Structures are given as structure tokens and as C-alpha cells.
Amino acid sequence: MDSTLPSGTTRRRVELRITRPLLTWFARPTVTINGVGQPAQWGVGTWAVPDGDTVIGVYCYNRVWRFGAASTTVAPADQGYEYRAGVLPLGPGSLRPQPAA
């Protein structure tokens, strides 16, 4: 008999490279997976995502406002993305697939 996976487990991970902008004014990044926010750090990290199409987003925030929001739908074949906020802490950011290595 096949056992089912425990709740919250996944076999799929997506790599995110979160690039720190020049002017952050003490901002920190947040990653959202299907609308659920999770704190993040600058640099490269991996995130567990559900199987199938998943909406993943990143934005920066400080104690006053949030900025640099970007989101995309992650297809099952995608492995990694790179996030970049704008040069100034205003306006949208970009979330693009990383080139295959």
C-alpha cells in the first residue's frame, strides 16, 4: 500500500536569486507563494512550491512602505528566477527566469 506524503511536503523547489538594490533604506525582501508571504534574505535561496502552476512574487518593504513588487507564474519546468528591484525604492521590480547553466 502506498503511503501519502504528510501535509505541507513537496518534491519541487525553485531557486530565487534576490538582488539587493543600491538604495534600500533598510528594506527587507518578502517572497509570496500563491499569496502567502514568507520572509526572505538577499542572495540565493530555494523555496518549496506546490506541484503544477504556482504564482510566486517578491517585494521589498521597510517600516514605512513596500516597493519593487513583481510576480510571475512558475511553470513545472522552471528551475530558477532572478528578482531585481528598481534603482530607487519606488515603482515595480522584475522577476525573470535565470538562464540555464
Rank of each mutant, 00 (worst) to 15 (best):
M1I: 14
M1T: 08
M1P: 13
S3L: 13
L5V: 02
P6E: 08
S7G: 06
S7H: 04
G8V: 00
G8E: 02
T10P: 03
T10Y: 08
R11C: 09
R11D: 14
R11L: 12
R12Y: 01
R12E: 00
V14G: 11
E15N: 03
E15W: 13
E15V: 10
E15C: 09
L16C: 12
I18Y: 03
T19H: 01
L23K: 04
L23R: 06
V31H: 12
I33K: 04
N34P: 06
N34I: 07
G35H: 02
G35M: 12
G35A: 02
V36T: 14
V36Q: 03
G37W: 10
G37C: 02
Q38R: 04
Q41I: 07
G43A: 13
G43K: 07
V44C: 13
V49W: 01
P50M: 06
D51W: 07
G52Q: 00
V55E: 14
I56A: 15
G57F: 02
G57C: 09
V58S: 14
Y61E: 11
N62Q: 05
R63K: 09
R63N: 04
W65P: 00
R66T: 04
F67M: 09
G68M: 12
S71R: 14
V74L: 03
V74S: 00
P76I: 00
A77Q: 06
A77L: 00
A77N: 07
D78Y: 00
D78V: 13
G80T: 05
G80Q: 15
G80Y: 14
Y83F: 15
R84C: 07
L88A: 06
L88Q: 05
G91C: 04
G91L: 09
P92I: 07
G93Y: 08
L95C: 12
P97M: 05
A100R: 06
A101K: 14
